[in-house]
Design a protein around this nucleic acid. Structure first.
Lengths: 198, 198
DNA sequence: CACCGGATTGACTGGTTAGTCAACCGAAGG
DNA sequence: CCTTCGGTTGACTAACCAGTCAATCCGGTG
């Protein structure tokens, strides 16, 4: 075991990539930008990653797996559905609070661009939907949620609301502050569960 | 007035671009793909447009202006807020039904990628939000909608839900059919206005 | 100390493509 | 019939950049 490098260059590269992708966008930035930002030689990027795409891939999958785990964990509790949704929204919003650049990259470059990248991503995104659908369906069976609204649409509304709020922050269309983050969690869930109608 | 060309090549190019962007993605396709698809010489694209970007720009702005007009029109009526939202959701979904490729391009390449493109787009998108916010605020004043939920969040939830459903169709995560389109309109509005809770 | 192998370097290449431009075409008008 | 001029053509270029690779470094091992 000759391991335990003082600095993990691979991690350095990934972290630099987040900053560069967030700042310049995946398509506009050059691999050399990532290397420079990481303070590392150009070639080292290709020592750790097969391609520029794979750097983005890795960032996305790494984070998405954490998200899936969080949803699974919430799903396993026996909280009321509304609180489960609050936890899920909370987790995603806190992810953004903790590392806005990473979430920006995931949303802007991956979530919608699932096009360019393989079916891996669509599959992973679909997994998240499926898990949330499970939460909704269980709530419908237990009578917590009304059954007229198909769970697929409920999920899209819920997840779409969250992503749209993040997008609003990312593009400066919505104010940002600690208070706003907390408010958002509450209001998204209030809207989706309680509805806007008086 | 020596006008009235038999075929409007400019239009031909725009329509071809929609197909190519939808099929291959904006970044992956080449300008020659657009020219070929349109059955037109490469150089003609640059006769009508300053750049590849401007082709996408034009497609987006053209369609978005129509959307803004539709929202303004709905806003001007004195229907109940819930019906206004139904009309707006309906307009967007019908846009997709009528020309899925165009909506795909707008959502996948512009709405989220507002990054790469100028502030023009963010501004235009913000205009749509502002108009919908007007609808919500008026409803809150009239007591149709409850006032606890800030209108900004309500708008994000509503618009986010719509866009997410379209995204689901685009990426094949949601079934598509005439019936689904109509259902979606109803269920999105039901969710946002009435809430999921029983 | 000599050797090994993985980490690290950065110059170079091969392929790609957005955008340019000089020439060509054909209808309208004189 | 000739001229004009916008529309149209497509070969060409200048730049760009992802990915390769041969060389170097360095810590560990026997």
């Amino acid at each position: 075991m000759t391991k335990a490098a003082p600095v993990d260059k691979r991690r350095l590269i990934l972290d630099a990539a987040v900053r560069v992708f967030a700042r310049e966008g995946f398509h506009k930035c050059r691999v050399s930008d990532i290397a420079d930002e990481a303070g590392v030689a150009y070639g080292l990027v290709y020592h750790y990653f097969k391609s520029k795409d794979q750097v983005l891939d890795t960032l996305f999958l790494e984070r998405w797996e954490v998200l899936l785990e969080a949803i699974r964990h919430t799903d396993a509790t026996d909280l009321p559905a509304e609180q489960k949704l609050h936890q899920i929204a909370g987790f995603i919003i806190d992810s953004y609070r903790h590392d806005p650049d990473l979430m920006k990259v995931i949303i802007v470059e991956v979530t919608r661009a699932a096009n360019s990248f393989g079916a891996v991503h669509i599959g992973k995104i679909g997994e998240a939907y499926a898990l949330i659908r499970g939460v909704v369906e269980k709530a419908q069976e237990r009578g917590e949620f009304r059954a007229e609204i198909p769970a697929e649409f409920a999920v899209m509304s819920f997840y779409g609301a969250i992503e749209q709020v993040l997008t609003g922050w990312i593009f400066g269309l919505l104010d940002e502050s600690e208070a706003e983050y907390e408010d958002a969690k509450v209001h998204i869930v209030q809207t989706i569960c309680g509805g806007l109608a008086a």
